[in-house]
Amino acid sequence: MIRFANLDDASAIAEIYNDAVRTTTAIWNDETVTVQNRADWIASKQTDGWPLFVMEDEQGAVAGYATYGPWRAWDGYRHTVEHSVYVQKDNRGQGIGKALMQALISKAKQTDIHVMVAGIEAGNEASIRLHEKLGFNRAGTLHEVGTKFGRWLDLTFLELNLGE
């Protein structure tokens, strides 16, 4: 079941986020977050009117989450968003990311969003393939623009034109 996140989801979202920080190059942060940090983030998403979806597993636990928000701060970019999608480590590869992305894309199409942007670590072929299956096109790669785990990382951008 996919639904809008609420403050009760802060702990599960923090757990998923922190696992990605500690073990993957999906999030280029070195520091984990607190449950309060995620609660504040959820509240901010709600206040600002940005969608934040969670997907529950059969037991009702949060198995993943997805959201989008401003791509860049200037007015001319107001119809472009950048999204994030993360799946709990034991639930990866089961279609949860795809389902959450489909919900995000559907929501964006109901608004005045024209383009959705994905910034993905260039070595994350599974995520890149998922995005391409959903209609995203590769827009280019920036080389060695980030670092994590003692190595330089490349960032591949993909775009989905929602007006097509």
Rank of each mutant, 00 (worst) to 15 (best):
M1A: 02
M1V: 00
F4K: 06
A12R: 04
A12T: 08
A14L: 07
I16H: 02
V21W: 06
V21F: 06
T24Q: 07
A26E: 08
N29Y: 07
E31A: 15
E31Y: 00
E31N: 14
V33Y: 04
N37M: 08
N37S: 12
N37P: 01
W41I: 00
A43C: 02
A43S: 10
S44A: 11
W50L: 04
P51R: 06
F53V: 09
E56H: 04
D57K: 04
E58I: 12
V62N: 11
Y65I: 03
A66G: 11
A66W: 03
T67W: 06
W71K: 07
W74M: 15
G76Q: 13
H79P: 00
S84C: 13
Y86D: 06
V87H: 10
Q88L: 06
K89V: 15
D90V: 08
G93P: 03
G93D: 01
G93W: 05
Q94W: 03
G95M: 11
G95C: 14
L100H: 11
M101A: 08
Q102M: 14
Q102K: 14
A103L: 05
A103F: 12
L104S: 11
I105Y: 06
K107Y: 13
A108D: 01
H114F: 07
A118E: 10
G119T: 05
G119P: 02
G123W: 07
N124W: 04
E125N: 08
I128N: 05
G135A: 11
N137T: 10
A139C: 12
G140I: 11
G140L: 03
E144H: 12
V145G: 04
V145Q: 08
G146Y: 01
G146H: 02
T147G: 15
F149Y: 12
F149N: 07
W152E: 01
L155K: 05
F157Y: 15
E159R: 07
L160F: 06
G163V: 02
G163A: 12
E164V: 14
